[in-house]
């Protein structure tokens, strides 16, 4: 998770992220995450492989593995696109 570039806060089970551009808050591009998104980002506070993430979330949610893997894939594509999550080791990704 790219914590340096965002100000993050939790409200109930949801999360809000305000991006910083040159330290200036970009209030027009605020991201909000539901409970699942917030759970995924909490897991990514420390770098993880996709396998580690999947294992972690599998214990949290009553879901079959194929659905979970597809959902994680979708989430990561968006999160990487919005620079919320960084790939730090391409091979393991």
């Amino acid at each position: 998770m790219n914590a340096e570039q965002f100000v993050t806060r939790q409200m109930g089970s949801e999360m809000v992220m305000v991006p910083l551009t040159d330290k200036v808050a970009d209030m027009t591009s605020v991201l909000t995450l539901n409970e699942v998104g917030a759970d995924i980002l909490k897991i990514l506070e420390n770098p993880k492989t996709i396998e580690e993430m999947t294992e972690n979330l599998f214990t949290l949610y009553d879901v079959d593995k194929a659905t979970l893997e597809a959902d994680i894939d979708d989430f990561l594509k968006t999160a990487i696109d919005k620079k919320v999550v960084e790939i730090i080791n391409q091979e393991r990704f």
């Binding site: 806060r9 809000v16 330290k23 200036v24 808050a25 209030m27």
Partner: peptide, 26 residues
């Protein structure tokens, strides 16, 4: 929830130039 808070925040008069300031506003 957060949707209410963020839609309200959108009309704030806000000039924040560092992380600590933005966090306090949030």
């Amino acid at each position: 929830g957060i949707n209410a808070a963020m839609r309200f925040m959108a009309n704030g008069i806000q000039h924040f130039y560092d992380k600590e300031m933005t966090g306090r506003h949030l």
